[in-house]
Design a binder for these strands. Sequence first.
RNA 1: AGAGAGGUGGCCGAGUGGUCGAAGGCGCACGCCUGGAAAGUGUGUAUACACCAAAAGUGUAUCGAGGGUUCGAAUCCCUUCCUCUCUGCCA
Length: 423
Amino acid sequence: MLQLQTIRENKESIITALKKRNIDAEPMLSKIIELDEKRRSIQTELDATLAESNKLSKEIGMLFKSGKAQEANTLKEKTAGLKEASKQLGDDLNVTAAALQEQLYQIPNVPHESVPAGNTDEDNEEIFREGDIPPLEEGALPHWELAKKYDIIDFELGVKVSGAGFPVYKGKGARLQRALISYFLDKNTEAGYTEVQPPLMVNEASGYGTGQLPDKEGQMYHVTADDLYLIPTAEVPITNLHRDDILAESDFPIKYTGYTPCFRREAGSYGAHVRGLNRLHQFDKVEIVRMEHSNNSYAALDEMVEHVKGLLQDLKLPYRILRLCGGDLGFTSALTYDFEVFSTAQDRWLEISSVSNFETFQANRLKLRFKDENGKSQLAHTLNGSALALPRVLAGILENYQTKDGIKIPEVLVPYCGFEVID
RNA sequence: AGAGAGGUGGCCGAGUGGUCGAAGGCGCACGCCUGGAAAGUGUGUAUACACCAAAAGUGUAUCGAGGGUUCGAAUCCCUUCCUCUCUGCCA
């Protein structure tokens, strides 16, 4: 959510920046400014009315105490009109503030200046590429065939137990999955991220805090009996650890990492691109989350990108980094780098990490602030990234490391797996 | 799930209709004291919004949330959320 003051002061530049998202924000912003002006004028009037009313009440109290009941009763009559007026103004204020809030929730974050304009993923800008694409032998298989061949992931069993998109990992497949989680957590911890195990269900306030609500309500599983939501990413509970906090500058940087399953309804997904591990209702992910001083968040973002690069270099997977264009940028993000691994057997790139700076967009909803050197509160910046999302890393490993003698395990994972090959 | 207790400032905790944004304590900050520290001592120490160019200042709101009674509510009434304890159930 953008800050009102920012909108008031930078309306034109916000409109220009939002054009990169192919949004004409002019009508919305004008509406917001209009509502804000209305709200302020009502507030001023209401405050004056209440002040008058408070003053009279005090006088009445004094008069009663000193036994001048008659004078007090005279004053009482004067308060009736004030009371009526403040009730009316209060209602107006509530209506206006609610309308304003609703408008504000609809404005996406302002893209960073480096974000390219564009409509679709075609317009994303590749900024880095590394790793060799392995020459595969005749008869190389996509991961869902490999999963079946070596009996390491059973999609049909998942269908029986839950439904499509809930795979069952078995044997060495399950072990490899666990190895990846441990490996990522270890690397993240080494890089200074504090490991946390957050709740997997969150309340409504948390959903609003990070921006899943109200915009993406349909994408989360809603446990209606208790009004909780299954987390679509660890970003939600971890970022909300600091909801309503006022930090000291010395608290920065705040760095967390956490492994969680993630639950996504993925309504509307279908087709070949969602086969196998490509798109699931439940998947595992290790996330990194940071809270930063506003003047350090882009340095932090770069650091996160370097860190994720390190993970992929270790796994020796061919990958590229994209700077998302305005049209592909998430609602809450100011700048996002997507990491994609090349899946050789599918001959396509698979997104395995998304690293974003939200600037103050989430912090404004979270009321996550810090005291600056002048003792003033200002909003912190929040960032997060996958380090990494498991299923597609797994898909990449299975497909890129396949040989006719089985699937080799990347060297760094062997100590975690306890075996060198899946055969 | 049943019964009970309770939600007050960073924390603890007092406050049952008016002078309460809220005693007292702890913590924290700054100063004094000290060779230095501790102790002692003094001062300060919530957030949001509005007015003001801004600072200063002023006003308004906030004692879980929402509503009501009243000239006036932390205090009374209603609704709701949450927490804790015991019982039950269960990993």
